[in-house]
Design a protein around this nucleic acid. Structure first.
Lengths: 215, 215
DNA sequence: ATTATCTATAGATCTATAGATAATGC
DNA sequence: ATTATCTATAGATCTATAGATAATGC
């Protein structure tokens, strides 16, 4: 069993210490690194494969093509946030303000926490293509969760539809934007940064005094 | 004189109604449209030139290469914001809160107001390259202006250096993020959207009641 | 026999240059 | 003569496929 201790098959031209990841996961990791820093179109399949320790053509044993890598990265980074959002939506025992705060904090932490700045994937021009409809659907659902939580807050209940949509865009934009700014910014601890962003989001929602972690 | 009524030189293969722009400006406009929607690396020189009404090779009569187009677009979109920021910084007669509000609103309006979503240029992975140091310098100065105005607000005066830098990142991230979200969002009037973003920015800064246009 | 890898390459680009051409200007 | 454009193309890629190869598994 196992993804790692592969022995079968022709040996690789360049041997490397075993990372513990499956070959496919190494490809995804390499693609994440390169797509976020250099962009999608500017990243060659050769660069991805070589960074994952194999030759360019070998990549096609694991993925159907370059687009597959981006599609999988996009979906796998947005799915955990949506899962959390659904849990929070269903949890009527906690105040909506606190649930929205948690969603914001987790979203930032998830996207900033890993070794790569995965939030940068979302804004790649190529990611807007029709081809990645699966990602767009999930992301749309996540945004809808933000809207619903926002509507359930005290301040949100007072807003009409248009105002609510506007605030949702502002909060969503904040989350997306800070992740990008962080790309060039100082290395603050992720937990602190994520909490501060969640605080800011609730200030945008309005109606609240300043907050601290509710959990 | 004039950029437009060119008569000299071999006629173009495809004649088009005169847009009033110089050939160079038509190239820049075409590049803005394509770079923001498809990305830099994914946009070919052929696509840019043809959209500007000329053949691929003719582009090189006006620009040294593809990179030149991006460099010029980046600088020309950030420079007006910096000019405004400097004016506001010098204007000690107006409250810092009001000046920061104006800067935020203008920044959003400038980037969202035109026919293209120029804010999308800032986050292109290729735009982070060393090659565009001129843009990065100007943009850094703009961010410094945000920081200085923020520090001069009532709420900002109470913050230590680290907190101030954090709030600056949050405000800067908000501006950048909402411009991107707008790419897929509904077509709200720019003026309303820009003012709402400036309101949100000041709520992030903190210490204030809700605001309306101070001018 | 199966698997994971390799080497080699066809076919399709894409950028930038070379050199010709068709206008106007003098 | 000068200018703005064109056509043609060299040289450098880049993606994806074809087919060979070197392991293990049975």
């Amino acid at each position: 069993m196992s993804t790692t201790g592969r022995k079968v098959g022709r040996p690789r031209a360049q041997q490397r210490p075993d990372s513990g990841l499956s070959a496919r996961d190494e490809l995804l990791d390499a693609a994440a690194e390169l797509f976020t820093t250099r962009g999608y179109a500017a990243t060659t399949t050769r660069a991805v494969a070589e960074r994952a320790g194999m030759r360019q053509a070998t990549m096609y044993h694991y993925v159907a093509g370059k687009e597959d890598l981006l599609a999988e990265l996009l979906e796998s980074t947005v799915t955990p946030s949506l899962a959390l959002a659904r849990t929070l939506l269903a949890d009527a025992l906690v105040a909506a303000e606190d649930r929205l705060w948690q969603l914001c904090r987790s979203d930032v932490a998830l996207l900033c926490g890993g070794p790569h700045n995965l939030g940068a994937l979302y804004v790649l021009p190529e990611a807007q293509a029709e081809r990645f409809a699966g990602f767009h659907r999930v992301r749309g659902e996540l945004k809808e969760a933000y809207r619903a939580l926002l509507a359930a807050t005290r301040a949100g209940a007072a807003l009409d539809e248009a105002e609510l949509a506007l605030r949702t865009d502002l909060v969503f934009g904040l989350i997306e934007g800070v992740i990008l700014v962080r790309r060039s910014g100082p290395r603050r601890p992720v937990a602190v940064f994520a909490a501060a962003t969640a605080d800011a989001a609730l200030r945008i929602v309005g109606g609240g005094r300043d907050r601290n972690s509710p959990s």
